[in-house]
Amino acid sequence: MEESGSTENNSKALRFLRWPWNIVIYVLLAVVFRIFAIPLILALTWFQNKQNPHGAAEGYCLSRTRKQLKGVLWSLLFLFIGAALAAFFYVGWKKDHADWDRKDIISLIVSGLGAVVMTILSIYQFYTSLRDTFFPGKSRLAKSIREQLPYPEEAPPVKELFAMVDQDLEENGLWFDSVGIGKEWVLGDMANRIDRIRGIFTVDRIHQHNTQTGIRSYRTLELVLIDNRWKKSVTAFYKPKELQAAAEYLSLKVPGAVCGKNLQYADFLAMDENQRETFERKFMQTKS
């Protein structure tokens, strides 16, 4: 019985590409097919998610840190913008400045500063992406788990840290978009211990801004959790219904926590020391 179960697991394991082969294949596809690789990569990603939801086979946490590798693409984008701005600055610098008006000078300064900022941003993004991907022990996620422990300085190695969260999610986890909620842990972009949560806020805002081609709008969907040290962790969502469901599920698990919408979390964070103490006392009373 057990044997057939393990055979089934093995056969399932073969049906998706394990790290780092998935990345190798994506890169190869991109090299060979260039822009036409996009639908192929998307289809492959969908298949991967279907066969190995939330990276269950490799461990949820590890899979999450490895996903940070896509930040390299962002860093390349920032680098490209930085390079473009630097080129603009260089060409401007080489020109004759005799008949320059104030607008030209401002453009030169902005392009120069922009080039520096974008390059720094690109380096930082590149660094954090590679750090989170290849050194999970130093990742933001591992740090957030450590901080949630009673004695962070005595935290176990990253393997055990991740195993702790993974096991909880494997046994009790419910997934809302990419956020997993277990009995003790919430795994979003960062990890939160459920018993430490004091504030649950949903952000659902539509931003609009004018462009040369008209008005552009985009929607922000975020779950903001605030813990008993008044630290906030933010996780982005794709589907509004999933965001609401996650918030409701958490509010049922932590009935004493404050729930709110959009920028209400700013008021919660703005509480002074006395207010926080009063709130904490009330929370503990509700809990007992």
């Binding site: 419910l174 219904k241 999933e242 469901a245 409701e248 599920y249 049922l252 698990k253």
Partner: peptide, 8 residues
């Protein structure tokens, strides 16, 4: 309510 949230 909690159980309902197990389904979508």
């Amino acid at each position: 309510r909690e159980e309902l949230l197990h389904y979508r």
